[in-house]
Design a protein around this nucleic acid. Structure first.
Lengths: 190, 190
DNA sequence: ACCTGAACACCGTTCAAGT
DNA sequence: ACCTGAACACCGTTCAAGT
């Protein structure tokens, strides 16, 4: 039967979860779907574009939420982190797709965060900068956390769980820094 | 004559500057050096390790500096950004090497930033988190900036220079957010 | 419209064998 | 100690040709 975009993205996600981003190749994906490699290029212009679709699928779990601007930022970032951690190499894949400008959902999240910054009183020409700064933190710290997590799961030495236990607190601390920064900045300008 | 680590790193940097990270392959590098690909593996255990050495070469230009903790953070980040921007795909390469834990100099910079955070009054168990948050911002924003810069240099549409002019201000704003956050956080805790 | 088959132009890494 | 040659096991992408 016919191959649809959704099937391809689903199979790619499964491949990612089971074997990681290094094994997520167009040829391997085609093999899993029992089509020729060229077939994928009927549905996607490039591997980058396909990875963007996988990123958007991963980020589907992140819905926006209510509350004041601080709660909205903290919640959005928390959910983003959870979504990334729930797929093997999820943070790395989304990070790469974001950098390549291939994730539409990531662009939406940026808008949500920029709106929260606006509510906080950040001047209109700086809300985008504030939102990006927050996103850089979430992506950077989660890539770090996940690589350590996965390294420990394989290597398994003693001091690993200590890091893992602290990672929630470390994430919360960095995020607090940014929220405090936004709050302080708007106070200074008003 | 004999091949030395320094020659390899130098040739790799030249290849990076002239053709970008996508063309920085072990085989192409070997061709430029007029050796067989296998020769490189006598001097470096893997491509990742070689890229780490290139990252450290790029970061050699970033020396540490004096002043109060705020000045030290702002200066260090400014110099880091300059170093990244002065090589094609420099931000991407250093970012990848940092994530892979292959850049010794990046670890030094982390320590410098952590020391500044400590001077600011951040509790000892959080200085590392503060430093990493700053580094995530510099790497993330500079990767972004550089990809836009290089895309414009090739594509060349109208609205490009506007972005370029604002990128200094955008960087400064994000950095200010973080410095304000560190300042606010320590005030709240003391 | 959708896919196959085969090709093009590459990769990183290993390792016996040479000097 | 340092390097070559050749192999192993792959890549992303394109495109004429088929149905």
């Amino acid at each position: 039967m016919q191959l649809h975009k959704r099937d391809v993205v689903e199979a790619a996600t499964a491949l990612l979860d089971d074997y990681g981003i290094a094994d997520l190749s167009m040829r391997r994906l085609a093999r899993d779907l029992e089509v020729s490699p060229g077939a994928l290029y009927w549905h996607f212009a490039s591997k980058q574009q396909l990875l963007g679709a996988v990123a958007d699928r991963i980020l589907g779990a992140v819905q926006d939420c209510g509350g004041d601007w601080q709660e909205r930022i903290v919640q959005t970032c928390g959910r983003l982190r959870e979504a990334l951690l729930s797929h093997t190499d999820g943070a790395e894949l989304v990070s790469a797709s974001f950098a390549a400008g291939q994730s539409a959902v990531m662009t939406d999240l940026l808008a949500v965060l920029a709106a929260a910054a606006a509510d906080a009183g950040v001047p209109a020409d700086s809300t985008e900068s504030a939102a990006r700064t927050v996103v850089y933190f979430v992506l950077g710290s989660t890539v770090d956390e996940q690589s350590r997590l996965q390294w420990d799961a394989a290597g398994a030495d003693v001091s690993a769980p200590v890091w893992a236990e602290n990672s929630d607190a470390r994430f919360a601390f960095g995020l607090r820094l940014l929220v405090d920064g936004i709050a302080a900045h708007t106070r200074a300008d008003v």
